[in-house]
Design a protein around this nucleic acid. Structure first.
Length: 425
DNA sequence: TCTGGGGTCCTAGGACCC
DNA sequence: TCTGGGGTCCTAGGACCC
């Protein structure tokens, strides 16, 4: 045998962000609900009822405002602290069903079910769904197959089934299911590949499965041929159970209203630098390279579009907020141009490394290094204890006129007693 | 008026070396 | 001053994911 038969399950939470909001707000249970991205910009999660109204994923809010109003669609701004917390509960529960598990995103995970007998797979999946729903309140869909790509495909079909589970391993109609999946909904096929495939008459997952391997190899990259092989049942992508530390860390936001002044951009970049520094300290990492970028809106006034970014390689790796801010503001001054209406700014920390590999060298410029480390620890502690940005630095600004809109925030914080819902009897 | 944010991986091309 | 082939490493940009 060329390979060992694996069995994968992809467990995916249904309309995850919406489901999280529903947990604390039963009045929106059977109603159309959407969750908006930062700054209330785009739709990033939709309930089944909202999908049926024709509201599309990723659509700008202002384009669906009419439908929203007409159908009394309930709107929520993002509450990532809440979604992250619920996600951890779901993953913890899932882990009981297979220690070999890969948390793939905030709302989905691959499980290795190779040890389960074929005839028991369905029953096992139902049990997983039932337990997750009972313990966390979150509805899920499960797809089972011999490769990750096929389990994604099975999951896609499962989302439309009442049972919420599709098992390709025991099914004789896999090809029929694959015919139902448009090529752009295949895992690993994005916008560019979709265009190319459709031009060549490949319109469904089934078409991609049936196309000659030599053609795929000649015309696409390794990604393309991997996807096609996986659709045929040859595993090319393995389970990655270890949670690896991130290699880059980006913090960026678009502004609530357009920003023109360097001072305002500086405030935003300072705030983003603080958040990024805190994130990498939490992971016990240091950074080698800082990039700062700013841009105007790519949608309005295209003639006056301006976007720029620059990087600095640090002489010495650090995770010190004050040092990072200093460098970031230096870059910002360098790329800032007067007379533009800026829409977004951000900072990227790359070349992240573990603190242990932290090597002090001759160019160390941070004086009182021990003191500064203690200061950073104090800031991190205060912000963990009293909420993000409880302790900041003055440079980040207090008014924050650049900060985004959050008009429909649910104000649920599972880590705060103050915000617990009250029950009146 | 209003168009998200945070990641990973691959690839082509340049710099450098022998 | 000119000549060639072949290798590695790094980086920026693109494509993809949720």
């Amino acid at each position: 045998m060329l390979y060992s038969k694996k069995k994968f399950a992809l467990v995916d939470c249904n309309s995850f962000y919406v489901s999280c909001e529903r947990l604390f707000n039963p009045s929106i249970l059977k109603k159309p609900v959407v969750v908006l991205s930062n700054n209330d910009g785009c739709v990033i999660s939709r309930s089944a009822e909202a999908k049926n109204l024709g509201i599309k994923m990723g659509e700008p809010y202002f384009k669906v405002a009419k439908i929203v109003k007409k159908n009394d669609v309930k709107i929520f701004s993002t509450n990532f602290a809440l979604y992250g917390d619920i996600s951890r509960r779901v993953m913890k529960t899932l882990k009981q069903f297979s220690p070999q598990m890969e948390v793939y995103s905030i709302d989905e995970a691959f499980l290795d079910l190779s040890s389960i007998k074929n005839e028991n797979l369905l029953e096992h999946a139902y049990k997983i769904r039932k337990t997750i729903l009972k313990w966390t309140g979150i509805p899920t869909s499960i797809g089972i197959a011999t490769t990750k790509t096929l389990s994604k495909a099975a999951n896609y079909i499962a989302k439309k089934e009442k049972s919420g589970v599709i098992d390709f391993i025991n099914s004789k109609q896999v090809d029929n299911f694959l015919l139902e999946i448009e090529i752009n909904n295949v895992w690993g096929v994005g916008r560019q590949l979709t265009k190319f495939y459709i031009k060549n008459g490949i319109n469904t997952a089934y078409d991609l499965k049936k196309i000659h391997n030599s053609w795929i190899k000649k015309n696409t990259n390794v990604f393309g041929s991997r996807t096609a092989m996986e659709l045929r049942g040859f595993p090319c992508i393995s389970l990655e159970p270890h949670e690896e530390k991130r290699k880059n860390c980006c913090v960026s936001r678009s502004f609530g209203k357009k920003v023109t002044k360097l001072e305002e951009l500086s405030e935003a970049i300072t705030a983003h630098s603080l958040n990024a520094a805190e994130k990498i300290r939490l992971d016990k990492q240091t950074v080698k390279k800082i990039t700062v970028f700013i841009r105007t809106s790519p949608f309005v006034d295209k003639k006056n579009y301006y976007a720029n970014s620059k990087s600095i390689d640090l002489a010495i790796k650090t995770n010190d907020s004050i040092e990072l801010i200093k460098q970031a503001l230096f870059i910002l001054k360098n790329i800032y141009r007067k007379g533009y209406k800026y829409q977004k700014a951000g900072i990227i920390l790359s070349g992240l490394e573990d603190v242990n590999s932290y090597d002090k060298n001759l160019f160390s410029k941070i004086r009182n290094e021990i003191k500064r480390e203690k200061l950073m620890k104090a800031i991190d502690y205060a912000n963990a204890r009293y909420g993000r940005n409880s302790l900041s630095i003055a440079q980040a600004g207090l008014k924050k006129i650049w900060s985004g809109k959050k008009q429909h925030y649910s104000k649920i914080d599972t880590a705060s007693f103050r915000l617990l819902p009250t029950v009146r009897i």
